[in-house]
């Protein structure tokens, strides 16, 4: 819209609109845009964290990281983690939503209980799970030995592939409620008449699920999957607190790698390069998601 077309009153309104958005823009520039640009800038330096002194190295950080096995193995772990935990979240989330959509006793209490893991702090979740996973006194190991599945306590977090599986499992437990609530909200808007029509047409419960419920859920599921994929991919707290990336580096994802480079190995420039590459990888998903939301709005 060209400003020249606007009447004075319209222009006054536009000015007020800009004043109101002003604080937001200011904060955005200071804490998001500026750091984002300097992250890219920093990635061209070699900086030693304690002294914060650096020298220009150009693109050599990038060249180095792409040649390094640790980057590729972290990326691979990151993908396994994301796909694994997301799959569990979706399967379990949709299943639980379907259950909670039925008539069950104390349904609202059940909903609250299901929702709780999502809202509880990751720190709390991790502490509880580490206690559950405890090799000597953890109830999980007690359970495993009681059922006779194993006569030795399982090392849930200290060995592979258990550690990665445990992380994926805890991630699924923590984040599947998001899928439940989102799916449930959509389920409630499916008109009963659709089910009645399907019943009249002779569809059994299974056919009704595949022919009525699933097609209706498709759109919301696509959105959920994209959103959760982005969020799971960048997850730091849960993995860092559960295993710290260990044993050795076998559960180390890229966010953990960035943290390690910057604050344990004191290589801020290199860490920035990792972060920038990670963002570039995520950009594809982010743009897909943003495109989709904007389409829906129009």
């Amino acid at each position: 819209m060209a400003t020249a077309d606007l009447s004075p009153l319209e222009r006054k309104y536009a000015r007020l609109g800009i004043v109101l958005i002003g604080p937001t823009v200011l904060v955005f520039c200071a804490v998001i845009v500026y750091p984002l640009i300097s992250a890219i800038y920093l990635s061209l330096f070699s900086i030693y964290t304690p002294t914060l002194e650096g020298e220009w190295v150009g693109l050599s950080n990038y060249a180095e990281l792409l040649a390094k096995g640790e980057f590729w193995s972290s990326l691979w772990t990151n993908i396994i983690w994301t796909v694994g935990t997301l799959t569990l979240q979706i399967l379990f989330g949709v299943g639980m939503a379907l259950i909670l959509h039925q008539n069950m006793i104390f349904r609202s209490l059940a909903r609250s209980l299901i929702l709780f893991p999502y809202f509880v702090s990751t720190v709390v979740a991790v502490l509880v799970w580490r206690w559950l996973f405890n090799d000597l006194y953890g109830i999980l190991n007690h359970f495993v030995m009681w059922t006779g599945a194993s006569d030795m306590p399982v090392d849930w977090l200290g060995s592979m592939p258990n550690a990665l599986l445990s992380v994926i499992l805890v991630g699924a437990w923590k984040y599947f409620p998001f899928v439940v609530i989102a799916t449930l909200a959509r389920l409630q808007t499916i008109p009963d008449s659709l089910y009645e029509a399907a019943k009249i047409d002779g569809a059994g419960p299974i056919a009704r699920f595949f022919d009525v419920t699933l097609p209706q859920l498709r759109d919301v599921l696509v959105v959920i999957i994209m959103l959760r994929a982005i969020w799971d991919f960048k997850e730091f707290d849960l993995i860092y607190l559960l295993t710290g990336g260990g044993p050795v580096t076998s559960t180390q994802t890229i966010p953990l790698l960035v943290y390690k480079e910057a604050f344990a190995l004191n290589q801020m420039g290199m860490a920035s390069a990792y972060a920038v590459v990670m963002m570039a990888l995520m950009l594809v998903f982010m743009i897909l998601y943003i495109r989709r939301t904007q389409e829906n709005e129009l």
């Binding site: 955005f28 804490v31 998001i32 500026y34 750091p35 984002l36 300097s38 992250a39 920093l42 914060l52 982005i230 969020w231 991919f233 960048k234 730091f236 890229i254 966010p255 960035v258 943290y259 910057a262 801020m268 860490a271 920035s272 972060a275 920038v276 990670m278 963002m279 995520m282 982010m286 998601y289 943003i290 939301t293 904007q294």
Partner: peptide, 20 residues
């Protein structure tokens, strides 16, 4: 658009510049 973009932005990208 920018709002939505930052809504999805990973914290680890911002954390080093913010620390400095």
């Amino acid at each position: 658009f920018l709002v939505l973009f930052t809504y999805l932005l990973p914290s680890v990208v911002l954390i080093i510049p913010l620390y400095l």
